[in-house]
Design a protein around this nucleic acid. Structure first.
Length: 744
DNA sequence: TTGGTCCATCTTTTT
DNA sequence: GATGGACCAA
């Protein structure tokens, strides 16, 4: 059988396993996606399963698309183009998109209609704020973000407002807000991310007919990244597979990094308990990394208690030691990363071989700046950045309102953007009038031109009424356009009518950037030619950060450790390995969270194929201010023989636990891509060549404060100083990095 | 109602 | 060092 060519016995077993529940525990790089796609092809080609009777679920669109392409390829459809609509393809989708589709189809059984919009994280917080306001609750005491997190957690555990447990006053408040929150969503004909899962799970649980229909249809249900499912997802999968019981799940408890989102890797254990006849298959051989990298990964993850010992082995050879680098500060760290990449590119690596990973999004900034300083291109993974932009949200809100005028969050967002004389007062009156008429504010607004002015005048000023009427005329125009035109045409009509460019592009660079973002959104809309506005809206509501990764450009990738899951790169840098960053300080108190931080590091390490660099700064910037920090405690767990200590900045720095000192060496010079390619390195532009701080000078350091220079010399085009600081003692610093000032 | 300024808060991770 | 809210003058 061609499908099994080149597979190891465990992989073959996993692909050709019989019927019934199957649990595949797949370590990193063990060919998990390959097994899943081959399993699907095997069922279709050899077991006579019809595509219609199969469902495959992933967490990101990117994973779904990749699975689709690989299955299409195996089935001989070629690997080009969009196969999601091909007649012989099974349904492959993310949890959220599969649920959205199901809910639209079954809307008659639900308290909203099939045109519902999907509220994103910002929208959700706005709704919570509105609910808090209506309930007269102190928003200082009950932060909208926090209350929303509680509601979200409740939904992930399938708790409804009625069943929300109350043990203290705050619970009581959350329960009330939760109830009002759901009402507000329904008046907006909206659901949030969590609702997609929650409503689906509840519908399948409570409506026997619907459940039976889907359960009979899906002879085979396959799930990727099962360790990241939450309770809602677990339950809805269970219902979908309840008739045929052919549920095939693939996961790795060591890569569970979404507990904060309600994921529970114990679902893997629960699976074995709920399906006592489940076959369990272990994939242990790693095809990705060198043994050195796997040993470092094992050293980290082995410290987690309650962990079943698992081996990771490879036949890829020993490989090179992992490089550990301590930089003077986070800026120097970023410089080191970029210059090392440039050097390796000069040595023959492709720029696209590299990934730079970090714990928090904020850390990307300095890395980006370092790339920009060296005039080197990079790509940053993060859809949030784009869709979170004000101008992008504005335009999307217009489109959402056109599609679903009940959407009050979008209405509030755009009604006065650009300003058209309809302020908070007028909107409050409008909401009251709408509530009296039992209509959503937007629906009431649409009906407003037909109403008797005299009734309205008691609540609204003539000016407001006329402004609203004018807005309604536009809205109606866009709505009729949306019925026949492409999403991009609707967008154009809106942008022109409201003169949006004049509004956001003030001629400054930032204004130009804002307009560029709008045009980028338009470019995405153009791809939806021939498809409908709701399809466009649904897709942009459910994009994940990973979905924005473009494979084509040959440049380094910058991404969070979370976004790195499922990916692999020849060379990986994990940056910012400082205690408080990784592990994050918010996890210090909670042993479970600390275990998850460790898994996060493990995920990062196991992305690397050939080479791994671990870097940490001695100071980091928080809130814009620099503060000293210690190396990550996780670094202590890596045996010395696996590590090569690279150049460090010229300071005496000790690794925790090792007691060793770093030697002081030159820093590499700054190249550009072209010069990196040619192997020529121009001299560093801003390195001082003469002594600026002679012995005896009094200096001020931004972190360590006042000190006196004991010794000063030029080394490799930089001034190296030994300084005695009043507060922290003797330090060795590089003048180009230390931001020293003469004390006056 | 608008638009300016000033202040607090924020930073974990995201479908 | 960004962003959103509160506050205030016109």
């Amino acid at each position: 059988m061609d499908l099994l060519n080149g597979m190891n016995p465990q992989q073959k077993q996993a692909v050709t396993a019989g019927l019934g529940p199957i649990l595949v525990i797949a370590g990193p790089g063990s060919g998990k996606t390959r097994v899943l796609t081959h399993r699907i092809s095997y069922l279709l080609s050899y077991m006579g399963v019809r595509p219609y009777n199969m469902l495959a679920v992933t967490f990101t669109n990117k994973a779904a698309k990749e699975m689709e392409n690989r299955v299409a390829n195996l089935l001989g459809y070629g690997d080009e183009g969009d196969h999601s609509r091909a007649p012989n393809m099974p349904q492959v989708g993310t949890f959220h998109s599969v649920c959205a589709r199901l809910l639209r189809r079954e809307a008659e059984h639900l308290p909203f209609n099939a045109n519902f919009v999907i509220f994103d994280a910002d929208d959700q917080v706005s709704v919570v704020k509105q609910a808090l306001g209506e309930l007269n609750l102190d928003e200082k005491r009950f932060r909208a973000q926090g209350v929303h997190a509680s509601i979200s957690n409740a939904k992930n555990e399938l708790l409804l407002p009625e069943t929300y447990p109350v043990q203290n006053y705050r619970d009581d408040v959350v329960k009330k807000v939760y109830k009002r929150y759901q009402e507000l969503l329904l008046t907006s004909n909206a659901v949030d991310f969590d609702d997609l899962l929650l409503w689906t799970a509840v519908l399948l649980e409570q409506n026997t007919a619907v459940r039976e229909r889907y359960a009979r249809r899906f002879e085979h249900v396959l799930v990727d990244e099962f360790q990241d499912t939450n309770q809602a997802q677990y339950v809805l999968l269970k219902h979908l597979a309840s008739f045929h019981r052919n549920i095939y799940v693939v996961g790795d408890p060591d890569q569970s990094i979404y507990a904060w989102r309600g994921a529970d890797y114990r679902n893997l254990l629960r699976f074995e308990e709920d399906y006592t006849d489940a076959q369990v298959i272990l994939l242990e051989q790693n095809y990705r990394s060198t043994q050195m990298i796997l040993d470092v990964a094992t050293a980290i993850i082995d410290r987690n208690p309650h962990r079943k010992a698992r081996r990771l082995f490879t036949d890829r050879g020993t490989g090179r030691k992992v490089v550990l680098y301590q930089a003077y500060d986070d800026r120097a760290e970023a410089t080191y990363v970029v210059e090392t990449i440039a050097k390796l590119v000069a040595g023959g690596n492709q720029p696209g071989d590299f990934a730079v990973m970090y714990r928090t999004n904020a850390q990307s900034r300095l890395i980006e700046e370092a790339f920009l300083r060296h005039n080197l291109p990079y790509k940053l993974v993060g859809a949030q950045r784009f869709y979170g932009r004000r101008e992008v949200k504005d335009v999307i809100a217009y489109l959402r309102l056109v599609h679903n005028p009940s959407d009050e969050i979008s209405l509030n967002r755009v009604i006065n953007v650009p300003t058209r004389g309809i302020g908070d007062k007028s909107m409050a009156s409008l909401r009251q009038l709408a509530a009296k008429a039992h209509l959503a504010a937007g629906d009431f607004l649409l009906a407003l031109p037909a109403m008797d002015d005299s009734q309205l005048q008691s609540a609204l000023t003539a000016r407001a009424i006329s402004a609203m009427k004018k807005f309604v005329l536009e809205l109606r125009k866009w709505r009729s356009l949306a019925e026949k035109a492409n999403p991009a045409d609707v967008m154009d009509s809106i942008l022109e009518a409201v003169e949006y460019r004049t509004f956001i592009d003030d001629g400054t660079d930032e204004g130009q950037d804002r307009w560029d973002n709008v045009m980028e959104l338009r470019r995405l809309a153009i791809e939806y030619e021939g498809r409908t506005l709701p399809e466009f809206l649904e897709e942009i509501a459910l994009v994940s950060d990973q979905d924005t990764i473009q494979g084509s450009s040959n440049v380094p990738t910058l991404l969070t450790l979370h976004a790195a899951k499922g990916l692999e790169f020849p060379v990986v840098f994990i940056t910012g390995l400082a205690d408080g960053t990784l592990p994050h300080m918010r996890s210090f108190e909670d042993p479970d969270s600390m275990e998850e931080e460790r898994r996060l590091m493990y995920v990062g390490i196991t992305r690397a194929m050939d080479r791994l660099y671990l870097t940490c700064p001695q100071t980091r910037s928080t809130y814009g201010y620099a503060e000293p920090c210690d190396p990550s405690r996780f670094l202590e767990n890596i045996p010395n023989q696996l590590i090569d200590v690279s150049y460090s900045s010229p300071q005496n720095v000790s690794r925790p636990g090792s007691g060793g000192a770093f030697s002081s060496t030159a820093r590499p010079a700054a190249p550009t891509w072209q010069s990196a390619r040619n192997g020529t390195a121009p001299a560093q532009a801003n390195a001082p060549k003469s002594i600026q701080f002679p012995a005896g000078s009094k200096v001020v350091h931004p972190v360590w404060g006042d000190g006196m220079v004991l010794n000063s010399r030029i080394m490799d085009d930089d001034e190296t100083l030994d300084i005695f600081f009043e507060n922290v003692g003797l330090k060795r610093v590089a003048a180009s990095l230390a931001h020293l000032k003469h004390k006056t």
